[in-house]
Design a protein around this nucleic acid. Structure first.
Length: 424
RNA sequence: GGAGAGAUGGCCGAGUGGCCGAAGGCGCACGCUUGGAAAGCGUGUUACCGCCAAAAGCGGUACGUGGGUUCGAAUCCCACUCUCUCCGCCA
């Protein structure tokens, strides 16, 4: 959520930055500013009446004490008038406030000035590539067939137990998952992130804090009996640790990592893209989250991307980093890098990580602030997060790219985690 | 699931209708003291919103949440939420 103060003070900047999202925000910004002005006028009115009322009440108490009942009764009559006036002004004020909020909440985050223009995924520029493309003599087998051949992932069994999109990992498949989770958590810890193991369900306040609610509840599984939501990403519980918190500026940056399963209803998903591990209702992911000083958040974003790049190098996967254009960015982000790995058998790039700076968009909802020694008033912090990494598509690429006549090899960096160097 | 207790500032905790944004303590900051520290003494220390170009200042709001009674509510009434304790069940 953008702050009303920033909108009020920098309307032109907001409008031009939202233009990067191909959005003409002028009408709505104008409306917000107009309503906010009205709101402030009404607040002054409310304040004045309330002040007079407070004064009168004090006087009445005093008069009673002095036994001047007549004067007190006279003052009481005046308060009756004032109370009506107050009620009216309050109602109007509340209404204006609600309208402002309702409009602001529809505004996506303002993209960073360096976000490229573009309509959709095809316009995202590649900013970095790395790793070696796999070469095969014959046809590479897609991972869903490999999974069956080596009996490591059972999709049909998942259908039986739950439904589509809930695969069952088995034997070396299950161990491979566990190895990857441990590997990712260890690497994050080595980079200075504190490991958390958060709840896998969150309440409504947490859903609102990171921006999943109120609009996107359809994407989360909802336990209606208790009104809890299954986490769609560790970002939600981990970032919400700092909801309603004021931290000392010296504590920044705060670096956290967590593994959680992620649950997504993914209402709109189609056809061949959802085969195998490409799109699931439940998947595993290690997330990295940082809370940072506004002056440093963009440098920090780069270090987070570098961390993920390092992981992909260690996994020996061919990858590319793309910068999302305005038309392809998420609602809450100011700047996002996606990291993709190349899948040999599917012959396409698969998104395995998304690293974003949200600036103060989440912090404003979370009321996550920092305080520095010089200027004592708390200010909104910046939040960032990224996948490091999401497992299923990584596993898909690892299976497909490392297949050979004898089986599927395991990257060197992982062998000490898996306890085996070949799936056969 | 059953019974009971409770929710006040960064923390502990007092406050049962006005003098309470809230005693006292802890913590924190600054100063004095000291060779240095501790102790001691003194001063200060909530957040949000509005007015103001800004600072100062002024006004308003907030004692779990929402409503009600009253000229006036932390305090009385109603509803809700959450927490804790005991019993039951259970990994």
């Amino acid at each position: 959520m953008l702050t009303i103060k920033f909108i009020r003070e920098n309307p032109e900047e907001i409008i031009s930055r939202l233009k990067i999202r191909n959005m003409d925000a002028k009408p709505i910004i104008d409306e917000i500013i107009g309503l906010d002005e009205k709101r402030r006028t009404l607040q002054s009115k409310v304040n004045d009446v309330q002040a007079e009322l407070n004064n009168l009440s004090k006087q009445i108490g005093q008069l009673f004490k002095e036994g001047k009942k007549k004067d007190a009764d006279k003052a009481k009559e005046r308060t009756i008038l004032l109370k009506d006036e107050l009620k009216l002004a309050e109602t109007d004020h509340e209404e204006a406030e609600k309208k402002v909020l309702a409009l602001i909440i529809t505004l996506p985050n303002a993209p960073h000035a360096t976000v490229p223009n573009g309509k959709g995924a095809e316009d995202n520029p590649v900013v970095l590539t790395g790793g070696e493309m796999p070469k095969f003599d014959g046809e590479a087998i897609p991972h869903w067939d490999l999974a069956k051949k080596y009996d490591i992932i059972d999709f049909e069994l998942g259908n039986k137990l739950t439904g589509a999109g809930f695969p069952v990992y088995k034997g070396k498949g299950a161990r491979y998952q566990r190895a990857l989770i441990n590997f990712f958590l260890d690497k994050a810890r080595e980079s200075g992130y504190t490991e958390y193991l958060p709840p896998f369900m969150v309440n409504e306040d947490s859903g609102f804090g990171t921006g999943q609610l109120p609009d996107k509840e359809g994407q989360m599984y909802h336990c209606t009996v208790d009104n809890y939501y299954l986490v769609p990403t560790a970002e939600v519980p981990v970032t919400n640790i700092y909801r309603d918190v004021i931290v000392d500026a010296e504590e920044l940056p705060i670096k956290m990592t967590a593994y959680t399963p992620c649950f997504r209803r993914e209402a709109g998903s189609y056809g061949k893209d959802v085969r195998g591990l490409n799109r699931l209702h439940q998947f595993d992911k290690v997330e990295i989250v940082q809370i940072e000083h506004p002056d440093k958040s963009y440098d920090t974003l780069e270090t987070m991307v570098a961390h993920v790049v390092k992981l992909l190098n260690q996994l020996e996967l061919p990858f590319r980093v793309i910068k999302l254009c305005g038309g392809d960015m998420g609602f809450t982000s100011a700047l996002t890098y996606d990291l993709e790995v190349y899948s040999a058998a599917q012959q396409k790039w698969l998104e395995v990580s998304s690293v974003s700076n949200f600036e103060n968009f989440q912090a404003n909802r979370l009321k996550l602030r920092y305080r520095d020694k010089i200027d004592k008033t708390p200010k909104l912090a910046h939040t960032l997060n990224g996948s490091a990494l999401a497992l299923p598509r990584i596993l898909a690429a690892l299976l497909e790219n490392n297949q050979c006549s004898k089986g599927i090899t395991i990257p060197k960096a992982l062998v000490s985690y898996t306890g085996f160097d070949m799936i056969d």
